[in-house]
Design a protein around this nucleic acid. Structure first.
Length: 899
RNA sequence: GGGGAAUUAGCUCAGCUGGUAGAGCGCUGCGAUCGCACCGCAGAGGUCAGGGGUUCGAGUCCCCUAUUCUCCA
């Protein structure tokens, strides 16, 4: 690229670089080894889709441990270490423009849960940085929180860091909190100094040309309450993060994160596809390649973790990232689909650290291809719309127009600008921003807060209780103790007859809604608080964390905390749910066999009387395939397979081939439901003992839920009978109504509807013919008025359309000076509806009268109104008795106007 | 969760401030040709997504629902 200046050359690295030359994989391994040797349990990276429903994506290395830090979950070990994949999109505009912004990145971390604290964490961080990674102390600077004298003393006195290279920072940079209340504490960061020769005085850590922060140590030592008061925590924690890409940049001596071996191969792939040379490009071109490299990693990993492109939530983030890749590809001159190539390169690059990428290869590539094709369609449509705008030869593209293209049709603003520029036009960017802001305001104004008080009481109660022991796999009735009560949304000590109540027990035979299966129904009974016998009807059972909440109504007696009750699950309901649940497993197995082995579950519902299964599939399942699936499942049912349910370690289960669901968090020990030779899934639901118990399986519907997701609805077991009865009743009714045998109904209905259509058509034709015949006769009644020919007549039994064509026909016949007004009752037996039509020839219009206004005035006399074009107009009214008078009035008016 | 838009013939889409539902492609038949393509003529094919409302009259205006596209959080 001519004239691109300095960017052709690598950034001048002024100071001697220190540190070992290491690959990204070596850095990751060295970090984990270092802490494993120091008693940390190595943890696999959690999914990018977090368990925490309040967070869209895993945005930090500590996120999977957040419930542990907040005391909501037991710690997995006293010390842990992990390399966690993360995605952040808040600074997406900076990706590719700065040296180190990413969407996808890996965070190395070591964690202490109430174990070691500040001194140990600081010493290890230093030892790792200088010893393992070989960084020279001359290249390092540390920061501490303004008030954290303790940390400063450790760095200075224990580690021996030059006091001038210890910088105090404010809350904004060096104080961590997960929210307005809860655990929090000061941080300390380690920075790499690219230019130590500039000396130790006047160090400004904000200068990112000189410094790069690579290690952040969080000392969680306080709890902040609602008033903002800090109290020391009993169990102090350590949470740290080291950016893998940043350390790679430092150790590999490259000017930015994108040129490390963690990303650069993707830049080379994209450059190859575009036929360009990265080093020879200008900044804009380089930025595009960096964006493609960065985003390719992100979208590949997101899809791998089960995200599919959509218009909301994380699916939307995926879509946006993916479309940015396509756009930057086009900027570089790539004019054909290339995402699968980027996907393949990303998988190849990262599969050693994330083997799952290879397992999900087909799914990833298919999603990339689908979504890229969809975007190309969007672009094509947008280009067409923009061409229409440009065809009007505007001065400039208005903000509203650009915004409409963007907001309604998804056409990127940059492309609008680019195409406008080709036509020598600009885009009103301020107007665009204003329109965008207005959109945001609308969204904000419409957002309403949901009343969480009811949920709040249960949350509160559940948070204070131990996990409920679930015995429902073996037992359907059991005695247990009442631990908590919520009555009408308020925590209570006691509930009496008539109360809507939520009950928490220490152990329960009731299945709590989860894994798609509905909660059990049944009753709780016992002596009751008054000793007079209590009965509670249980209508739903849900789970709050691991606490089972039984919702129902007190039918009789009263109930208090501490009472012993006997819980009985409704056996019939449970049996039906079990049949439907096992049938769901068989359905998934059959889909894999008949449609595509790669089919993955996207949600399911197991109710008492039906089941619903959503799965990823780009096309509809054909009727033939549905039949095949049904036959296969009913075959398995009649073969009477005994189910084998076992608990085992998750790794063993996966090794055995059990199907796990993405986005689902599994404990270390999982339940495996095995229909030998047919299906094996990880599942916490309840199942039949033998497939024969299902009895029968019937698909009742197949439909699309969202792009790329199909839904099958089916019934199994006893519910099939209810379904058949309902259908049977319909067939019987139809048979009686049409006097036909069931097998002949379709034929009969087709025949009848054909006949109906034919006779309607014949009737319309006959009417038109009649109208024409009548109107031909009317022509003789025309009278000369001045230079015009006037015809006003009544014509009953003709619809509006026929009347219009009759009037028009008469004008054609009588010449350019003709004025024809026809009025009549379309149905001569109904005086409640009148139609009037006026047709004027060109000479009449020139003389003054316009058909539209004229007939409107006449129609008022019949209690109606109307209008139309000057040459032909139609009107209607409700008063048939006034018709003749109105026609007479029309004649007089026209005579006056034309005479 | 909140906006914007689309839904009309088998397909791609027109249809202006309400007034007789259209085009191109495809389909069928006939003509022309030794035959095919092209061409000419004729024809079939629509509960204007569904439901409610306003109006004398709704594809057109309003509300609800469904599906699809799209933006924001």
């Amino acid at each position: 690229m001519p004239g691109s200046g300095l960017s052709r050359f690598p950034m001048a690295a002024a100071a001697p670089r220190t540190g070992r030359s290491m690959s990204g994989a070596e850095i990751r391994a060295a970090f984990l080894d270092f802490y494993e040797q120091r008693g940390h349990k190595p943890m696999a990276s959690a999914s990018l889709v977090p368990d925490d429903p309040t967070v869209l994506l895993t945005i930090a290395g500590m996120l999977p441990f957040k419930p542990v830090f907040l005391g909501q979950q037991p710690r997995p070990a006293a010390r842990a270490t992990s390399a966690q994949k993360c995605i952040r999109t808040n600074d997406i505009e900076n990706v590719g423009r700065t040296a180190r912004h990413h969407t996808f990145f890996e965070m190395l971390g070591n964690f202490s849960f109430g174990d070691y604290f500040k001194e140990q964490a600081i010493q290890w961080a230093w030892e790792l940085s200088t010893g393992v990674f070989g960084l020279s102390p001359q290249n390092l600077v540390v920061s501490v929180f303004r008030e954290d004298d303790e940390a400063e003393a450790i760095w200075r006195d224990v580690v021996g860091v030059n006091p001038k290279r210890i910088i105090r920072m404010d809350e904004a940079d060096n104080f961590w909190a997960s929210g307005p209340t809860g655990p929090c504490g000061p941080c300390s960061e380690i920075y790499y100094d690219f230019k130590p020769e500039l000396g130790d005085d006047g160090i400004d850590l904000e200068d990112d040309g000189r410094f790069i922060e690579f290690y952040n140590l969080v000392f969680m030592q306080y709890n902040r309450d609602a008033e903002g008061t800090l109290t020391p925590l009993a169990n102090r924690n350590i949470d740290t993060g080291m950016g893998l890409e940043r350390m790679a940049q430092i150790l590999q001596g490259v000017p930015n994160n994108y040129e490390t071996d963690l990303i650069y191969p993707l830049i080379e792939t994209a450059a190859g596809l575009a036929g360009v040379d990265y080093r020879a490009l200008d900044d804009r071109g380089k930025t595009s390649l960096k964006v493609i490299g960065d985003h390719s990693r992100a979208i590949t990993q997101l899809i791998c973790d089960g995200v599919t492109a959509s218009n909301l939530g994380r699916g939307y983030i995926l879509r946006r990232l993916l479309r940015r890749v396509v756009r930057h590809g086009r900027l570089l001159g790539i004019d054909k689909p290339f995402l699968t190539a980027m996907g393949e390169a990303s998988i190849a690059l990262m599969q050693a650290a994330y083997p799952q990428l290879n397992e999900r290869r087909e799914v990833i590539l298919a999603e990339l291809q689908r979504e890229e094709a969809r975007f190309l369609e969007t672009l094509e449509r947008g280009e067409k719309l923009l061409a229409d705008v440009l065809a009007a030869k505007p001065q400039q593209i208005s903000g509203e127009q650009a915004f409409e293209l963007y907001d309604t049709y998804g056409f990127p603003l940059e492309l609008t600008e680019e195409i406008a520029e080709e036509h020598g036009l600009t885009v009103d960017l301020a107007g665009f921003e204003a329109a965008m802001e207005a959109q945001r305001q609308r969204a904000k104004a419409a957002a309403v807060s949901i009343d969480l008080t009811l949920q709040g009481a249960i949350d509160q109660v559940a948070a204070e209780l131990e996990a409920t022991q679930f015995r429902g796999y073996e037992l359907l009735e059991q005695s247990s103790c009442v631990l908590a009560l919520v009555v009408n949304g308020e925590p209570a000590q006691r509930a009496v007859a008539g109360d809507a109540v939520q009950v928490v027990l220490d152990t329960t035979p009731f299945y709590g809604e989860g894994g798609g299966q509905v909660g059990d129904r049944g009753v709780l009974c016992g002596d009751g608080a008054g000793g007079d016998g209590v009965i509670v009807a249980i209508e739903a059972v849900s789970r709050n964390r691991s606490v089972f909440v039984h919702s129902g109504r007190v039918e009789r007696g009263s109930l208090a905390i501490g009472d012993v009750v006997h819980g009985q699950v409704d056996r019939a309901c449970r049996r039906r749910a079990q049949a439907n649940h096992t049938a769901t497993h068989l359905l998934q197995a059959a889909l894999k066999q008949v449609v595509d082995p790669g089919i993955g579950q996207a949600g399911s519902l197991v109710d008492f009387d039906r089941l619903r299964f959503d799965f990823h599939c780009p096309r509809a399942v054909t009727p033939a395939e549905l039949q095949q699936i049904e036959a296969l499942i009913n075959g398995w049912i009649s073969e009477a397979h005994a189910l084998e349910v076992a608990e085992m370690a998750i790794d063993a289960a996966k090794a055995a081939g059990a199907v796990a669901m993405f986005g689902e968090k599994y404990a270390d020990v999982v339940r495996v439901v095995d229909v030998p030779g047919v299906s094996m899934e990880l599942c916490g639901g309840t199942h039949v003992a033998n497939t024969a118990e299902i009895g029968l399986f019937k698909i009742v519907g197949e439909s699309g839920v969202a792009a790329g997701i199909r839904r099958i609805e089916a019934v199994a077991g006893a519910a099939v009978l209810a379904y058949l009865n309902e259908r049977d009743a319909v067939v019987k009714q139809l048979g009686e109504r049409f006097k036909a045998q069931p097998g002949e109904i379709v034929e009969r209905v087709v025949q009848l509807s054909d006949e109906l259509k034919a006779s309607q058509k014949a009737l319309a034709a006959a009417r038109e013919e009649l109208a024409l015949a009548k109107s031909a006769a009317l022509a003789a009644q025309a009278q000369a008025v001045g230079g015009s020919v006037l015809l006003v007549a009544r014509l009953d039994g003709v619809e509006g359309a026929g009347l219009q064509s009759a009037a028009q026909g008469l004008v054609d016949q009588l010449g350019a000076a003709a004025a024809v007004v026809l009025g009549g009752l379309p149905d001569p037996t109904d005086a409640g509806k009148v139609i009037l039509v006026a047709a004027f020839g060109p000479d009449v219009i020139a003389a003054g009268p316009k058909a539209g206004a004229f007939i409107g005035g006449i129609a008022k006399l019949c209690g109606g109104g109307g209008g139309g074009r000057p040459n032909l107009a139609q009107a209607g009214g409700r008063d048939g008795a006034a018709l003749d008078g109105a026609l007479e009035q029309a004649r007089q008016q026209l005579e006056a106007a034309l005479g």
